[in-house]
Simulated assay, not measured.
Amino acid sequence: METKIFMARVADQSERYEDMVDFLKEIVVESSEDVTSDVRNLLSVGFKNLISAQRSAYKTVQAIEQNKKYAEYSEDCASYKEKISEELAKNCQKVIDIVNNDCLPKSKEEEARVFYLKMVGDYYRYTAETATGSKLEEVTENAAKFYQQATEAAEKELKPFNSNRLGLALNYSVFWYELKNDSSKACEIAEKALNGARDEIDNMENEEARDALSIIELLKENLDLWKEEEGAEDD
């Protein structure tokens, strides 16, 4: 086990993220219990880097496709986008399967359970970024389901300033803003998380405060932006 954890770190430093995820999958499959928080953090890093290249590439090709200077190549760009989208969906599904099949069933603590449920919601959301038609509907619905399950578990068991709970609120609010086009619901989720954290801020330990405050800043930035947009629309 220690050897595979070491090799996962080596793969991370070598930017060999498919290898990193494969090492981590072996760890979670072979473990009879849930993995440690350190390994969970490695999972988060490995999974995110596994798909970051495709997410970035898709946005780049999309921007080129929409540039009027390159209108004659729009069909070629659309075809290339589809190829990248398929790769992204495949990698996201790989993450979802690992978490659903090998991590969630072993999670006994609510902290870990919220972490995993949020993660599944995130990777359905990333799939939805490039999906269309019935596939978009399917993955959006799945993202909503897992985010809601994570939210219910977090509100029941985790403190309002817990970094997992705040990170979940951040991503769930982005989901409503970007995929559901509902800035009102996004603001509601972000405000609820911020108010809860503010009420409990005096009870934070130093380490908790450091983790929480960076997420609180992102929530505040999003909330200010979304409310400004809502105000402009009202005007």
Rank of each mutant, 00 (worst) to 15 (best):
1 M>L: 13
1 M>F: 09
5 I>R: 01
5 I>E: 14
5 I>G: 01
7 M>A: 07
11 A>F: 03
11 A>T: 05
14 S>V: 03
15 E>P: 00
15 E>I: 04
17 Y>D: 09
19 D>C: 06
19 D>G: 04
21 V>M: 05
23 F>C: 12
24 L>P: 01
25 K>R: 14
25 K>C: 12
27 I>Q: 03
28 V>Q: 04
28 V>S: 07
31 S>N: 15
31 S>R: 12
33 E>C: 04
34 D>R: 08
36 T>P: 04
39 V>K: 05
39 V>L: 10
39 V>H: 02
40 R>V: 08
41 N>P: 00
43 L>H: 10
45 V>K: 08
46 G>L: 10
47 F>Y: 14
47 F>K: 01
47 F>V: 03
50 L>W: 02
53 A>Y: 07
55 R>K: 13
57 A>N: 13
57 A>F: 08
57 A>Y: 11
58 Y>K: 02
58 Y>A: 13
60 T>Y: 07
61 V>M: 01
62 Q>P: 00
63 A>H: 07
63 A>W: 03
65 E>K: 14
66 Q>S: 10
66 Q>E: 12
67 N>V: 04
68 K>R: 14
69 K>C: 03
69 K>G: 03
75 E>D: 14
76 D>W: 02
85 S>P: 01
86 E>P: 00
94 K>G: 03
98 I>T: 06
98 I>W: 03
105 P>A: 06
106 K>C: 05
108 K>H: 09
109 E>F: 05
110 E>T: 11
110 E>N: 14
110 E>A: 15
112 A>Y: 06
113 R>I: 12
113 R>C: 03
115 F>C: 03
116 Y>S: 02
117 L>P: 01
118 K>Q: 13
120 V>H: 03
121 G>I: 10
121 G>A: 11
127 T>Q: 15
127 T>C: 06
131 A>W: 01
134 S>Q: 12
135 K>M: 07
137 E>V: 10
138 E>D: 15
140 T>I: 07
140 T>Q: 11
140 T>K: 10
142 N>I: 00
144 A>Y: 09
145 K>Q: 11
147 Y>K: 02
147 Y>A: 08
150 A>Y: 04
151 T>A: 12
152 E>L: 11
153 A>S: 13
155 E>R: 07
157 E>R: 09
159 K>T: 10
160 P>D: 14
160 P>V: 07
161 F>Y: 14
162 N>G: 08
162 N>I: 06
164 N>E: 15
166 L>V: 00
166 L>Y: 00
167 G>Q: 02
175 F>H: 02
178 E>F: 05
179 L>Q: 09
179 L>A: 06
183 S>D: 09
184 S>A: 14
187 C>I: 13
190 A>S: 13
190 A>M: 05
192 K>L: 11
193 A>T: 01
194 L>Q: 02
194 L>K: 01
195 N>D: 13
196 G>P: 04
196 G>F: 04
200 E>M: 04
201 I>Y: 09
201 I>L: 10
202 D>M: 12
202 D>Q: 13
203 N>E: 15
204 M>I: 04
204 M>T: 11
204 M>C: 12
206 N>I: 06
206 N>T: 08
207 E>M: 05
208 E>F: 10
209 A>S: 11
210 R>D: 15
213 L>G: 00
219 L>I: 15
220 K>W: 01
223 L>Y: 08
224 D>N: 09
225 L>C: 08
225 L>R: 12
228 E>D: 13
230 E>L: 15
233 E>V: 13
233 E>K: 14
234 D>R: 13
